[in-house]
Amino acid sequence: MTEDYRKIELIMSLRNQGIRDQRILEAIERTPREMFLGPSFQPMAYADQALPIACGQTISQPYVVAFMTDRLKLNDRCKVLEIGTGSGYQTAILSPLCRRVYTIERYRTLAKEAGERFKALGLSNVTQMVGDGHKGWPKLAPFDRIIVTAAAAEVPQALGDQLAVGGIMIIPLQSGPMSQELVRITRDERGLAHERLLPVRFVPLVEGIARES
């Protein structure tokens, strides 16, 4: 089976699972997921599953990437904060759908590798930082959209504070000792409202910048 055929099958699967936004499907179709994986996992690039990357992290399942992106309700005016750059795959999907993406990664190795991929793909509207995702990016706040790609026990206060009025945040939250739920948070003049979306499994959101040997 050729890579192009696997990609077509993935797009069809996403459609069948309810992803109908053509902009998102086109972004996924145009983005070479194999570029974000190590050589041994590249043959599985268009399987609809999460896969391991460096530093004990993962690249999310394409359906989860598409679902989270869809629920952000992006437009070309949106200023987006991403917590957890990882391989950069989610960032690459967000890039053509919004005005600018600001992405934070705690692992310098992952941030460097992701930056090289962004450059190779010509993603000129992505700005990176190595930092603590719990703190967000206060100098650039507020953000129209915030997407968190690691599971937290609760919404970090700084991220809630940095979400603009009328903004949307998508974040995985611990819902039990061994369970997580994807939650959509919206801000209005009265505060934050929570909406449960989907059971998920993400790596934990850890405070601080990682120490790497």
Rank of each mutant, 00 (worst) to 15 (best):
N125E: 01
A111K: 09
P96Q: 00
A141N: 04
D144T: 07
R108Q: 05
L140N: 14
P96Y: 00
K119P: 01
T103L: 07
Q162M: 04
I83Q: 14
L110D: 08
V126R: 06
V101I: 05
G166A: 02
T85S: 13
Q162Y: 02
G115Q: 13
L123W: 06
T91P: 00
A164C: 14
G131A: 00
G133P: 11
R100E: 09
A120N: 13
Q162I: 00
V126K: 08
Y102W: 12
G88F: 12
R108C: 01
Q162R: 01
R99W: 07
Y102A: 13
R106Q: 06
I147C: 15
A150R: 08
K135E: 06
A151M: 15
V148R: 10
V165K: 02
Y107Q: 15
L123I: 04
E105P: 15
T91F: 01
T149F: 07
K112T: 06
G136W: 00
I93R: 06
G122E: 12
D132W: 04
Y89I: 11
G115P: 00
Q162D: 02
S95H: 06
T127G: 08
K139S: 15
A153H: 07
D161H: 09
F143D: 02
C98I: 05
R108K: 09
T91H: 03
G136V: 00
D132T: 11
A92D: 14
T103V: 10
L159M: 07
Y107T: 14
Y102N: 09
L110K: 09
P138D: 08
K119G: 04
A92Y: 15
I146F: 10
A158R: 08
R100M: 05
T109K: 12
V130P: 13
V101C: 06
G166S: 03
Q90K: 04
T127S: 15
A152G: 15
K112Q: 11
E105Y: 11
A164E: 13
S87E: 02
G160A: 03
R117C: 03
L94C: 04
V130R: 08
P142F: 00
G122I: 07
R108D: 03
P96E: 00
G84C: 11
A152L: 14
K135S: 07
L110Q: 12
I168R: 14
A158C: 05
Y102G: 05
P96N: 00
K139N: 13
